[in-house]
């Protein structure tokens, strides 16, 4: 399961709009909203260093644009 989120240094217009909506809902203390995405897939491998390097390649090569996004992932067996 890969979590991609806008870099903290990059402005996130979607997060800002959602934050505004949360405030409209009465939750005035909410701040720092960021909207990212979750990508789930099967890799057909156990949690091995090889599997992790494969996931790293997928994240760096396609799922995440390092100019504007960061990622982290979890392996669920």
């Amino acid at each position: 399961m890969v979590f991609v989120s806008p870099k903290s240094t990059v402005l996130d217009p979607q997060g800002a709009a959602v934050e505004q909506a949360m405030k409209s809902l009465g939750h005035s203390s909410v701040k720092g909203v960021r909207v990212g995405k979750t990508i789930t897939f099967e890799i057909g491998d156990e949690d091995t260093p090889q599997a992790r390097s494969k996931i790293g390649e997928l994240c760096d090569g396609l799922l995440c644009n390092p100019v504007i996004e960061d990622y982290r992932y979890e392996i669920i067996e």
């Binding site: 806008p6 402005l11 217009p13 800002a16 644009n65």
Partner: peptide, 17 residues
Amino acid sequence: LCEAGLLPGALIRNECM
């Protein structure tokens, strides 16, 4: 071109949404 690395940077959602 930005995604392909032929130009630097990236284009994200308009600030005004």
